[in-house]
Structure formats: structure tokens, C-alpha cells
Design a protein around this nucleic acid. Sequence first.
DNA 1: GGGCACAATATTGTATACAACTTCGCGGAG
DNA 2: CTCCGCGAAGTTGTATACAATATTGTGCCC
Lengths: 236, 236
Amino acid sequence: MIHPISPVLQAPSDAAPDKTIAMAVSRAIHEHRLAPGAKLGEDELADVYGVSRTIVRAALRTLAHEQLVNIKRNRGAYVAQPSPKEAQEVFEARELLEPRTAREAALRATAADVRRLKMHIAKEHDALDRGDHGGALFLSGQLHVEIARIAAQDTITNFIESLIARSSLVVALYSRRESAICEHHAHDGLVEIIEARNPDEAEALMKSHLVDLHSALNLEATTHAPRSLKDVLGGL
Amino acid sequence: MIHPISPVLQAPSDAAPDKTIAMAVSRAIHEHRLAPGAKLGEDELADVYGVSRTIVRAALRTLAHEQLVNIKRNRGAYVAQPSPKEAQEVFEARELLEPRTAREAALRATAADVRRLKMHIAKEHDALDRGDHGGALFLSGQLHVEIARIAAQDTITNFIESLIARSSLVVALYSRRESAICEHHAHDGLVEIIEARNPDEAEALMKSHLVDLHSALNLEATTHAPRSLKDVLGGL
DNA sequence: GGGCACAATATTGTATACAACTTCGCGGAG
DNA sequence: CTCCGCGAAGTTGTATACAATATTGTGCCC
């Protein structure tokens, strides 16, 4: 079976243009080039990508459905700012879904799958070495998607994709450690265990990996409210 | 906290018109008034709802994202026809998510919540008594959403909503018993246990309820392929 | 009579024009 | 000086016009 979704989050050039734009913006969010709260003006985007607002609106709608973007009627689209509660929920959901997919992946992974995962990790290391922080962040999330994909449960994989995209926003808002990227050794370990076809350990390791990530967040409602301008500059 | 989503799947009249249409179509699918595979012409819908194609297209896009509708580029939108594999996945995902929400609901349900659930069941019975098969089918699914809502995990609730919508299509395609609606006694039992604040039993009962539903399906790939015309009339 | 090519029709995709709404700035009244 | 209201500018929402693509129908050729 051929994976229906492009593994690099890049639309083929002959695809629907709105999907191309949605992916480009999505990627910019993943890589923390677009901060939570950033305004996404329609004319501006239309100009950047050389299409009409019609297309841009379709793309924004897609992103809104994935909860990466907030569309306020008559007031425009903004990169989403998950509340602490939402952030909590995203990770709880991941902790529910991903251990299961890790287990399934350990059961089903082919040699080719494992090869792909290893290549993925190599790219991740490479990006970090090159100082491409954004790229590493993005790839780090995508590894989780790749693992879910091996489990061959498209429905759950789609959920996970959506959760990982939102995790990017959560990390941008609430990460307390500077580099809250998945530590590489964690990912190395995961892939090794999948290669070893050890479902129980894969499940457990994924769970603990997610708990680690979760606990690296600072979700105190008091410190980080959904950062509005008033809030940021309120002291003055 | 006020529930942000309308519990009756009906958009307020002052809301965005595309959401109104999306909900109307969604409901028609829920109630099996729109069969899987039905073509959803843009002009036709625009005419029915008295809006321009712009709005209709937005609505169709929303439905496509929920996987209730399949949009084939340049060829139109059709009510989705989940494959047996997809059907399987939908129920597996439900079996993973819903027992958890049932547990949580049993822990958190207020008296008002329980009252709402009971009223919901009453409406369900009522619809059946009136012979409103479609309405009963719809309400039956919505009860699961209501329970998820009590768990107050919006992220997971959204997933479940999406899964239940798709379940409607799955039932339309693969149900082997005539009335594959959740049996009322099953729902009665669920609500009772939630009222009794018994999380363990709630979790177990939801799980077995879903397994029941799942096993009422005939997912043999040979018998029910995604019904295309060729397939239906192939014998001639 | 069957099959293929081409024209006619219908439907979807995109851009643009216009309407509605929000926001910002100005000016006057208190 | 502050506050309210009004108007201008800018942005989003919707409808429509046009372009591109798929589908259907017709007629010619074999």
C-alpha cells in the first residue's frame, strides 16, 4: 500500500493550490516561524502566493478545521493560541492514542519501515547539527506521525497528525526548557524497540516519552494566559 | 462552563451560513436521508438553501474534512462511502476513545448532566415510537457525543463527534441487522451507571456496547465493496 | 452496427467586484 | 482633558462572471 499522504508535508505542484498554501502555512507554524497569535491577512497571503483570496480563504478554513488557526468572523484569521486546558488535552489525547500506535507499529513494521524511520532520525540529527532549529522541531514531530503511519490505521493517524500540529503551538507557548524538542536518544530508543518488534516496550516507551514531553511544559494558567497584546504589555 | 457546540446539531440562525448548510447536510446523512455515494451538486445545494455556490463550496469542504463527503477534483462532491477497512478503523478508534470518556463522564457528571442524558433518551424513545427512524438513529449517535461532552475533554470529544458521524455511514453500508441502532436498554444502562458514578463499570459497559455495535456489522470485503454502479449492476 | 473523434453541455475551479462589517482617527461636546 | 459619535480606511463576507475540466451527445468512418 502506498501512503496516501506526502511524508514531507509538501504538496505536489499539480495539487489543489489551497492545499499547497495550507501546508506551507502549517509548516511555518510547525517550525515556529509563525508565532501563536500572528495575524494571517487574506490579501497578504494572496499576494505572497500569487493567488486570489478565494484560494487563501479555502486554505485558512482548512487550517481552522485542524485548529491551527482561529477564524473570527469578520475579524480575520490568527494562528491559534491553545489555552492551558487545550494544551493539557492535546497531550492527554496523545498519551491515549500514541502508545497504541507504537505498539501496533512494533508489530507491523517492515524492514523498509524501519529504514525509513532511521533515515528520518538521521535527517533530524542533521538539521540540528546545521543549526536548523525549526526544521528539527518539525521533523521531530513528523517522526511520531511516521510511527503512527506504520500502524496503518489512517483514522487514528489523522487524529495524531492533528494533535502533533497543535503540539507545536503548545510547545511554542508553554515550553519551559529552551529545547523542548523530543530528545534524540528518546527517538533513537523508540526506533530501536520498534525494530526489535517489541510491542510491550514500544507502548511503554512511547507513553513515557510523551509524559516527559508533557512534563516539560509549564501549564500554570496564571503565568501563560493566551498571550494577547494587552496581556504582554499590561505592565506598562 | 458553557458547552460551545450546539447540542442539537442545528446552527443558530445568525451563524455563518456555510456552517448552517454543513450541519443540515450532516444531519441528513446522520438520518440516512442522504445515502452513501449520493452526489452533492453545488448548484443544486445553492438553489435549495438560497445562497451562492461560494457558501456551498465552503460547506462541502467542511464536510470533506470531517470525511463525510468525498470531493473529487473537477468532478464534484459525493457522500462518502467508507471502505470496510475504514469502517473497521472507525469502530476501533471508538473502542479506544469512548470507554475513556464514559469513565470520565461517570466521575464528573453533575445532576444536571444526568438529567440531560435522561431527557435525551426520552427523546430517542419518543422518536422510535413515532416511527421516526431517522431521528432515532441521529439521537442515538448524539447520546454518545453527549457523554463525551460531560467528560469535558473537548479535543477528544471532537474526535468522537467525527467518528460518530462516520459511523452513520458505516451503518448505512454495512449494518446486517435491520435496526442497528443502539438498543435502548444499552443506553439506559449506560446512563444509569453514569448516574451511579461508577467509572469502572461505565468504562466496561461502553466498551461492550461498542463491541456489540461493531459485531452487528458485516465487513466482509467481498460482499460490500464501496458500492459503485458497476458493482451494483455488474450482474446484468 | 460498432467505435472513435469532435462538438455541445454541464459542472467545477478561480478571480474579481461589490457589500457588510470592523477598526482607527478625527473632531466636537461636555 | 476626556469621552462619545461620526466618518474614512481597511478587511472580511458573499455573489457573480469567467475559465478550465469533465461529461454527454452526435455524426462520421470503418
